[in-house]
Amino acid sequence: MKSKVVPTIKLYDYLLVPIQIELDDNTVERLQMQILHEIHENDVRGIIIDVSMVDVIDSYISFVLSETAGMAKAMGCHTVICGIQPQVALTLAQMGIRLKDIITARSLEDAIDILDELD
C-alpha cells in the first residue's frame, strides 16, 4: 500500500483517524482507500474520525466521508465522527448536508463510549 495520507492510531479494536491536514479532493479520496485497507488489515470494529482541525468541510468532502462510512458499514464497521467545529456544523446544516451512515460524537471519549455501546 502507498504511504499513508493520515497517520492513524489503533485503540482497542477501533481505528482513530485524526485529520490534521488540508483536505483537498485528491487527499480525501486517498484517505478513503487508506481507511478501507486499514479496516481490512487490522480487524477494526469502529472508526473514529476526528475533524477538530478541519476548518472547511464542503459538499464533496462530506460526501466522500459518508461514502467511506457506507463502505465501512459493508465491512461490518461503524463510523463515528467527532470534533466538528461549530461554524462547520452550521455551514453543513445550512447547505442541507446530512452525514449519512455516520454517527456524530461530542468528543473522542464520547465517540469511544458510543462505539462501546454498539456491541
Binding site: 467527532c82 466538528i84 461549530p86 462547520v88 456544523a89 452550521l90 453543513l92 446544516a93 445550512q94 446530512r98 452525514l99 456524530t104 460524537a105 461530542r106 468528543s107 464520547d110
Partner: peptide, 12 residues
C-alpha cells in the same frame, strides 16, 4: 431546523 441539525452534527 438548520440550527437543530447543526447541533446534532456536534454530537449533542
Amino acid at each position: 431546523i438548520e440550527m437543530f441539525n447543526a447541533i446534532k452534527l456536534l454530537g449533542s
